[in-house]
Design a binder for these strands. Structure first.
Lengths: 107, 107
DNA sequence: TTTGGTTATCCGGCTATCCGAATAAGCAGA
DNA sequence: TCTGCTTATTCGGATAGCCGGATAACCAAA
């Protein structure tokens, strides 16, 4: 067998990738990488309705990608595993090189 | 502004993540990392209908994650950027550690 | 040019996801 | 406890994704 991964891990992996496949959620993750923020702050920063942001944060929370902590009236969100940003950056790096190769191939 | 990424790259990034958020497609990528294979071989390996595999390969091809090359009667598929597997493995690594932490926290 | 192995596409139908307005729920300070 | 700020959830509806059987398209060998 050439597929050594456990079924379980595979499904979790899919879950994570699915969480990452939305432009707003990616932006949220990068915003939280910059610094922890509350819902309203993120909503303003991304110019997106509060309900939308809250829903996206719920997705990220369920997948354990972000952690919430109440701070006075607000709820502060932060990255659970900052290394996930490294992974995202690596992905972008591969993407960037792929684009370069393609543009060269066109010429 | 704390979100330095270009709109464009962001959408491409989402596209890639979306391609990665299906268990069958992940299995296909790992199978191709093992060695290049044709559609029928993948279908047999994963015990999945040929049409389903072909559809998934089309998605991966559109996203430039795999490359196809005709070889006699068959079409051989291979990874365009093997480094994507490194990225996937890193993601799994973060995931594994997250699981460990959670299981410890439960105790 | 016919045959048979291989791959891509079409089809109908189901499920999942996303959206923003509206509303409910939580909580701290007066 | 009432007020007001913050966050979570509900709602209806639109869009996108996935599935596998059937069929079409491709191509090499006879």
């Amino acid at each position: 067998m050439t597929i050594p991964q456990s079924e379980e891990l595979n499904l979790l992996h899919v879950h994570i990738c699915q969480a990452l496949s939305d432009p707003t959620r990616l932006q949220i993750l990068y915003a939280l990488h910059d610094k922890p923020r509350n819902v309203t702050a993120i909503a303003k920063l991304l110019d997106t309705p509060q309900s939308t942001i809250s829903r996206h944060l719920a997705v990220l929370r369920q997948r354990s990608l972000v952690t919430s902590k109440r701070d006075g009236m607000a709820v502060n969100y932060s990255l659970s595993y900052p290394r996930i940003i490294t992974v995202l950056d690596m992905m972008r790096e591969v993407l960037r090189e792929a684009l370069e190769q393609q543009s060269q191939a066109v010429q």
